[in-house]
Amino acid sequence: MKDGYTVSVSGAVEGDLDEAVLRRLVEEKGAILDRLYGKQGKQHIEKRLGGYNQAAHRFPWVVFRDLDHDADCAPSLKARCLPNPARYMCFRIAVRTIESWLLADRESIAGFLRVAVSRVPSFPETLDDPKYAMVELARHSRLRDIREGVVPRPGSGRKVGTLYTSQLIEFAQTKWEPETAAQRSDSLRRCRERIHEPVKSQIDKSSS
């Protein structure tokens, strides 16, 4: 990277936790997340993906989306949502939700949630519902704050507890190690490799 030159990346994500993860991954490459769009669910992103892709002909973009159960595998969802990605577009899909990337750093998440490492699933990408797995893990926490904050109260009608988002944002910001996590999550490993591409090409562009 040239001295004093920082690559700015634009991004779009489904929610607040995805934002924290995206920031870590972009900053890991020495770039900064300059503009962030979305945070209103996957339908919101899907509708605007054409526009983001248009902008990515000239500027670096990273867009995250959860696979959920919308397709059998990430490549088929990608082909459906964005068949012709632009030059600087990095469209990545988390299998099946972003939580699996966080669970993939087993030691750190076990330490943060205060549970035994052996309780953390070994293959997070095979989980049917990683968010549910995260909540179940927190249910076994030795810390009352984690149990009461992350696990939903009976009768709340929600899948997560009051403090789920901010606790996991804190984890993603401070304790999560993407490099370690990538060893257990193929979708994260690819994401880390590909995020580098628009950043690198942008640096090349500036120095040419």
Binding site: D16, K39, G155, S156, G157, R158, G161, T162, L163, T165
Partner: peptide
């Protein structure tokens, strides 16, 4: 109300 942790009964 975007927060996923808000109970429907709240």
């Amino acid at each position: 109300l975007y927060d996923e942790g808000i109970g429907l009964d709240e």
